[in-house]
């Protein structure tokens, strides 16, 4: 499992540039699925047949946040803009990989006072990426404007806790891959690995239109509350079990999805948490409003430091999410 998570998180595929992660996921699924399709936007749709006649859809987005090179100056420094919700504060001092060309992030400041001021009110105008080139021509050859980059951040194995860039949402991809590998589904099991979630739920807006599932579950990361002075208005602990989402700022999970997951977890002694996320959203919001509407919810993995180069998850939550979703797909009862 750790190897799979490592492999998926280390792939560089920001929103709109998902080819590499799509190929990686397809490779990992080889021999475990009955078919697949890639739609016009680049979403990967796979399926495994069951016998109930009902369809269960699991979705994870395969893109990650990143940056785009917009301009190169005479000395070869690269200006960037964000792709998805990437913070200049996290970029400061980080390493960026532009298709394996490495760069480090610096900040402007002509006096010490200006430097402190810039850091205090940091934005994309004040930072630049240095790829070690001395002039425009050599930089442009390696990173032409329009090139996409992601955090360079190695996979760190801390035992039960794992750290990497792009846990959001490769951890969801890993969970769904494992479900597809292990489950003997009673319901037709569809999985979508969707594009451009970080740009505003782009891929998920159309991906389920033709599938018309009876129930859809987005598997994504969520926040945490268990760090020093962590948010006291929520309760989400690493290792406390996968989180069954009630609500976030983009959607309210369908009660039937919530109750189904909760009763399955309880019946089978799988630890779980109930999630109310104060800010953020998942593809469930786009799935809910697809076609004539899809009964949707989200199963989340509590994650620390989301959208930073070092997103941390707990492997037990991942294993329990897999168990729960396998039970859901195999349970010989009507889905809805």
């Amino acid at each position: 499992m750790k190897d799979l998570i490592k492999r998926l998180t280390q792939v560089s595929s920001p929103s709109g540039r998902e080819t590499e992660i799509r190929n990686t996921i397809l490779e990992e699924l080889k021999g475990y699925i009955d078919g697949y399709e890639i739609d016009k936007l680049g979403n990967l749709i796979v399926w495994k047949k069951g016998k109930s006649g009902e369809k269960l859809l699991l979705d994870a987005h395969m893109d990650e946040i990143g940056v785009i090179a917009t301009y190169i100056d005479d000395k070869g420094f690269i200006r960037i803009e964000g792709i998805g919700g990437i913070s200049p504060y996290n970029l400061l001092g980080s390493t960026i990989s532009f298709s394996n060309i490495m760069g480090v992030v610096g900040v402007e400041g002509e006096t010490l006072e200006e430097l402190s001021r810039n850091i205090k009110d940091l934005n994309f105008d004040k930072i630049f990426v240095d790829i070690g080139c001395k002039d425009r021509e050599s930089s442009e050859k390696l990173v032409p404007p329009g090139t996409f980059g992601v955090y360079y951040s190695p996979f760190i194995d801390l035992g039960e806790r794992l750290v990497s860039k792009a846990m959001d949402d490769r951890i969801g991809c890993a969970i769904i891959i494992e479900v597809l590998r292990r489950a003997k589904p009673y319901h037709d099991l569809y999985a979508t690995f969707s594009v451009q979630e970080e740009m505003g739920l782009v891929g998920a807006s159309t991906v389920a239109f033709n599938i018309k599932p009876n129930m859809a579950i987005a598997v994504d990361v969520t926040s945490h509350s268990d760090t020093p002075k962590g948010n006291k208005r929520m309760s989400l602990n690493l290792g406390g079990g996968p989180a069954i989402k009630i609500k976030d700022s983009a959607s309210i999970s369908d009660r039937r999805v919530v109750e189904k997951l909760r009763s399955l977890a309880e019946k089978n002694n799988i630890p779980y948490q109930i999630e109310i996320l104060l800010r953020g959203g998942t593809n469930a919001a786009a799935l809910q409003t697809t076609g004539e509407g899809i009964i949707s919810g989200t199963l989340s993995i509590p994650t620390r430091y989301v959208h930073s180069p070092h997103e941390m998850i707990d492997l037990r939550d991942v294993e329990n999410a897999i168990k729960l979703l396998i039970l859901l797909s195999e349970e010989e009862e009507v889905l809805i």
Binding site: D39, L41, E81, I83, G200, V202, T206, V207
Partner: peptide, 19 residues
């Protein structure tokens, strides 16, 4: 060189799935 502001490209991609 900027990514601010949206266009009909988003609406087209989201409604029809067309690149």
């Amino acid at each position: 060189r900027r990514t601010v502001g949206g266009t009909d490209a988003r609406a087209i991609a989201l409604s029809s799935g067309a690149p």
